[in-house]
Structure formats: structure tokens, C-alpha cells
């Protein structure tokens, strides 16, 4: 079956959800997939969450906006409340368990992965890399693209000013992936 996955990535503004959305899509392009990335704004921005939608597909992509996604990366509680009910049955839900009570995860219906993103990022020395931990776990859990494609795309997505942080971001991605195993 053709490779196809769409994702909503959501969290607080400042958690870097747009950055990992960009990174996922860019890596998809590097891995020869068709990709779309769209920051979803409008009234939804007011609820304390920032989110974006990424579509990765071997086929031509129609809609870049998805109501019922086939995967999620959820970085905070309001995003879980909003998007978990929309996730299609049996699909991957990466949940930042550092900030979200896993009791709220709908383990019966969807494939939930508790990823303590902030705790792992803290151990690596920079709590701001929690987003990378989540993306590493996501790529490992879904298998949609190789982790290497993501790591290789870091220089294309992180602005030149922060290029010194590429190795530590790569470590965070790997740490997230290792957690899923």
C-alpha cells in the first residue's frame, strides 16, 4: 500500500510545534514523498494552542487540511482535549506525558504513546528540545520516514543563527525514537 500519513501537531505557542511540523514535512520531501504543511490559524489560535497539519504521501495530495487525522503529536492538555477525539481509530497518538496526565489518553481506541518530552529534553540539557523528542518518537512509532531523513533535514529547517544547536537537536530526536524502541 502506498505510503500516506497525515498529522496534526499541536501545543502551546512557543513549544515549537510549527518547527517540528516543518521539519517532518521537509524530511518527507527529502524522502521523495509529496508533502504539505499548513499552520492552522484563525479562531483556533485563541484557545491557547498552536497547531499545524502535515500531509505526507506517495500520491498527489489533495486537501492540506484534515479534520480526522491519521496521527497526532500532542504537546499540551488543551490540544489533547481538542484533537484526540478527531484522531481516526487505531492511529498513533504521541502524547507529551511530562505535561499531560496519561489517564486522559484514549488507550482503548487509539495507539497512545506516553513520551515524557520535557523530562527527556531536560536531561539532555535544554527543555526547549521537547518538541524534537516528540518528533523522534513519532517517526519511530509511525515508521513513515527514516529518522535519518529527519536528522539530515535539521540544517534546512533550523535558522542559520541556531545551527550550533543541530547536534543537540539530533540527540533529542534520537532519544525520542529510542523511547519507542
Amino acid at each position: 500500500m502506498a505510503r500516506h500519513l497525515d498529522a496534526i501537531i499541536a501545543g502551546f505557542g512557543g513549544q515549537g510545534v510549527m518547527l517540528i511540523g516543518n521539519l517532518l514535512a521537509y524530511a518527507g520531501m527529502k524522502d521523495n514523498l509529496n508533502v504539505t504543511y499548513i499552520p492552522v490559524y484563525g479562531p483556533e489560535m485563541r484557545g491557547g494552542t498552536a497547531n499545524c497539519t502535515v500531509v505526507l504521501s506517495e500520491e498527489e495530495i489533495g486537501s492540506p487540511i484534515i479534520r480526522r487525522p491519521t496521527s497526532l503529536i500532542i504537546m499540551n492538555r488543551p490540544s489533547l482535549d481538542k484533537f484526540q477525539p478527531r484522531l481516526q481509530d487505531g492511529c498513533v497518538n504521541i502524547i507529551n506525558s511530562s505535561l499531560i496526565d496519561m489517564e486522559l489518553a484514549d488507550k482503548e481506541r487509539v495507539e497512545c504513546h506516553a513520551v515524557p518530552c520535557n523530562d527527556i529534553a531536560d536531561k539532555l540539557g535544554n527543555t526547549r528540545m521537547a518538541n524534537m523528542v516528540a518528533l523522534g518518537a513519532y517517526v519511530q512509532a509511525t515508521g513513515i520516514i527514516p529518522l535519518k531523513a529527519v536528522i539530515d533535514s535539521l540544517p534546512n529547517v533550523i535558522s542559520a543563527h541556531y545551527h550550533k544547536l543541530i547536534p543537540s537537536n539530533a540527540k533529542a530526536l534520537e532519544a525520542g525514537a529510542e523511547l519507542i524502541g
Binding site: M29, T36, I38, P39
Partner: peptide, 9 residues
């Protein structure tokens, strides 16, 4: 706004 804000390859 979709076309303008969406990123694609």
C-alpha cells in the same frame, strides 16, 4: 490564505 500559507515541495 491556504495557498499563500501552505508549504509544499
Amino acid at each position: 490564505a491556504i495557498l499563500g500559507q501552505m508549504k509544499e515541495a
